[in-house]
């Protein structure tokens, strides 16, 4: 049996959960096996029937389980796994999913493969996986020797598809929770003031690197972004570690992963750790004075030259076009 740990937010399954359920269904088909899921929350039972084609859904509902409570969730999942004896446990490879399954793996003292993108089957059983290294810049094929195999699925590795088939049976799972299972819990959520469009929502991202040379120069990129539809400004690690921009603007392996329609990289060399954060952009346009910069091997459009001349000229040109 393939057991899926499902993540919810605002009384809905997250997109990554649907991706994970899709991957589990496909894997179950290949292994001629069944799929079940675990649903935890303060009121999640109503979601269970939407998981069509699964054999059953185990539900743990408790008013104390609103939001993600790491240790309680891990205890419940570990007990469910011991009871149900799946051969594979799959969770979304999100921050929550990775945290959750790592805690489960620690409790059961089993290995865990995070960020999986492919599965290998041998003699009708899951043998190993392909998983991401270096934030996705490299892929690793690895064999997993322990059972059950605990895996998290790299977000966007599988496209979510609607599930078809009969409604699953719904079982309430009883797990005794103690105070200590709540020792790590959210105390408060301090909402951010929304200032403009966020990097992950923007349709166009203008990213600046060392070539900008200063915090002031980023004003130019702000102005360019303000002239483009749904645009936000991002940065490389060089720009954030020089305090030209806050770290929340950083695109890349240790920053934000973006997937806009267009990424405009200005004075950015195109280091892999940066590019892994923007490789899901539909198009990439690079402005760089060095024709041999690696960014030109990873972009769709290139402009060679000094950004300090090109960007102001481009701003003037766009203003002229808009005025016309």
């Amino acid at each position: 049996m393939i057991f899926v740990l499902v993540e919810t937010a605002n009384q809905k399954l997250t997109e990554s959960s649907w991706e994970t359920l899709t991957a589990a269904r496909d894997l179950a088909q290949k292994l001629s096996d069944t799929t079940e899921a675990l649903l935890i929350g303060s009121s999640v039972r109503a979601l269970a029937p939407t998981l069509k084609g699964l054999r059953s859904v185990s539900v743990v509902e408790d008013p104390r389980l609103a939001g993600y409570i790491p240790e309680a969730f891990a205890k419940i999942a570990a007990e469910a796994i011991q009871k149900k004896r799946p051969t594979v446990v799959l969770a979304p490879g999100t921050e929550m999913g990775n945290d959750w399954l790592a805690r489960v793996a620690a409790r059961l003292d089993l290995s865990l493969a995070t960020g999986c993108t492919e599965f290998f089957i041998e003699n009708g059983a899951l043998k190993g996986v392909t998983r991401t290294n270096w934030g996705g810049s490299l892929l690793e094929e690895t064999e997993i020797l322990s059972t059950p195999k605990l895996l998290t699925l790299q977000p966007h590795a599988v496209a979510a598809q609607p599930l078809a088939g009969a409604e699953p049976s719904v079982e309430a799972l009883a797990v005794t929770l103690e105070d200590r299972d709540f020792r790590v819990r959210l105390k408060e959520l301090v909402r951010k003031e929304k200032t403009g469009i966020s990097l992950t929502e923007a349709k166009v991202v203008v990213g600046g690197g060392r070539g900008l040379g200063s915090a002031e120069a980023f004003k130019m990129l702000e102005e360019l972004a303000s002239l483009l539809n749904n645009a936000a400004v991002g940065a490389t690690r060089v720009a954030t570690s020089n305090n030209w921009r806050p770290h929340s603007d950083q695109i890349g392996q240790t920053g934000t992963q973006i997937a806009p329609d267009l990424y405009i990289a200005v004075g950015v060399s195109g280091a892999i750790q940066h590019m892994v954060g923007c490789k899901n952009s539909k198009k990439i346009l690079a402005i760089n004075k060095d024709p041999d910069a690696p960014i030109f091997q990873r972009a769709d459009y290139g402009v060679i030259g000094d950004l300090h001349q090109i960007v102001p000229a481009l701003i003037a040109e766009i203003k002229r076009l808009k005025g016309a």
Binding site: L110, A113, L139, T142, S146
Partner: peptide
Amino acid sequence: QMARKLLK
């Protein structure tokens, strides 16, 4: 419990 086969 885990054995790397290759990188790609």
